[in-house]
Nucleic acid binder design. Sequence first.
RNA 1: GGCUGGGUAGCUCAGCUGGUUAGAGCGGUGGAUUCAUAACCCACAGGUCGACGGUUCAAGUCCGUCUCCAGCCA
Length: 601
Amino acid sequence: MSRTLITSALPYINGIKHLGTLAGSMLPADVYARFKRAQGIETLYLCATDEHGTTTELAAAEAGLDPATFCERAHKVQHDLGRRFGLSWDHFGRSSSPQNHRLTQQFARQLWEAGFIEERVTQQVYSNTDRRFLPDRYVIGTCPHCGYEAARGDQCENCTRVLDPTDLINPRSAVSGSTDIEVRSSKHLFLRQSVFSDKLRGWIDAKKGQWPLIVTSTALKWLDEGLQDRGITRDVAWGVPVNADAWGPNPDGQRPDVEGLAGKVFYVWFDAPIEYIGVTWEWADARAVAAGRTAADDQDWERWWRLPLAADVTYSEFMGKDNIPFHTVGFPTTLLGVNEKTDGKGVWSPASNAPWKLVDELKGFNYLDYYGGKFSTSQGRGVFMDQALELLPADYWRWWITANSPETSDATFTWEQFQAQVNADLADVLGNFVNRICKFAETRFDAAVPAGGEWGELERKLAADVDAKLAELTGFMEGREFRKATTALRQIWVLGNGYLTEAAPWTAFKADPQRAGVAVRVGLNLVALFAALAEPFIPFTAEKIAGAVGAPFPGRWPAGGVGLLDQLAPGQAVRAPEVLFRKVEDAQVAEWRERFGGPEA
RNA sequence: GGCUGGGUAGCUCAGCUGGUUAGAGCGGUGGAUUCAUAACCCACAGGUCGACGGUUCAAGUCCGUCUCCAGCCA
């Protein structure tokens, strides 16, 4: 039996995420996880907060908290919001967990001892006033090219030129504004990505046509430009400490400069992807504790990650396009590196008989814009997760975002389109269908599934049409084409409305109650089917729909064929649910546009 | 500047390895219906597929040039 491991890109700990983050990683991962579970496949869907780095340090300082406390609180907020959006994580972990610390340090040691990490001395800006090193973007000054006075040390926002902090005129600290800064030498570790270029290229080439175009072309672009070795340490306090004192010699017999590396931490982009494994360990530990043990056995989580135990696992990653390089080059290099070792003569060999798995299916997304521009925290532009839930239930957002998923190109959110589509699809087509047939069953058939009567041509045609659409829908789900999946699902709903209109049980009822009973029974079975098919997309509503006709929830994803519309036992009680989807009013749209910014913003 | 993606009906988008009258939803028009959240269902609505040139029996779909938009440049 195959298993499915699903991760979505880790949301950064700082700040509430906007709808774009939901669209580009968390929501599609959830839709897919729910689909796989409904198919009866053993599924593990994991996510975590990405907590390390300077941005966190500064945000914590601004909040008057130490980073650990800041992260703990922010993690709870994000966890809560995710739950309220129906994100069905098996575990929502933290990159600052002890498990991730151990893995990150273990991987770094193995990479060093295998000869894939080397030491280099780099020039870093140090602020005497702040008594800390400053990352490039926290050094600000005048751009030497255009004279813009607030240029950052990595790039000038005005002329977009890429800069080095030492290029700036009148440089100062972005933290304190102090000009008492200087350049100091600092020892750092570099991951030798360049030696993995050929292996990575072969791996990516094999995924062409299978992964989205944007994923393979982005990865190949990096490889074509020549992979550079990447600094994986930082002069920052909040992170996974570099544990060089625990490392053995590298293949050349060299030992790390323990003193020179003291007080440094790993770069967030080194430890964050490792948290995909770390969170699996956290999940296993949490289960073990729940079962009365103190901790998980390694095998409990390694069975998802290390071959040959994980040979039956298909690993799917979901992310926005900005994350693609780190998942196609950076993290795979780490895993390829720990799977290998070299001797002093440069001969490679497997490092272990249990190599780590690489991603099988990488789904990359473009951006969701807000009225053609970017969502912006600083400008208060666009809708953020907490605000969205204040306005409308999660299913409205889940549906619209999935139906407009930026799968092949950037997509745009506007309140007008949101209103039109949500009202039409959810309120008019789905909500009204459930309501009309349930109400009719209540008033004319004693609120129960009618018995008796035989299917006619109409029913056979409906079953065939639904079956065909279901096959289409299932195909889109398997292919992770969620936008198309919503279209197919909507078409199935339309088939239901069309059938009711044609079968017209309200007319048949007068002359041939038996005939009307067949139509109502089929209609109620459609309700049960809709609940099962809608569950990955709009789980909260799907549960209400299932409840209306006493269908199991969550139900199984139907395989199609005989019996598809014959699941409910005659006599089963029926109860029309309260209004499933209230329509979004024009006045609300006007108000929200005003509040969140419209086209002119 | 380099690179990546994209410019298809009023709007938002589908169109895989080139092949009958270029598709869907929304909007619009007409019809049908009254069970239902004034909802549902059906039909129609003609867009030189960014521009030009080329390859081919045949191009939105391949090649070249140009143009516009977006993003990326560690």
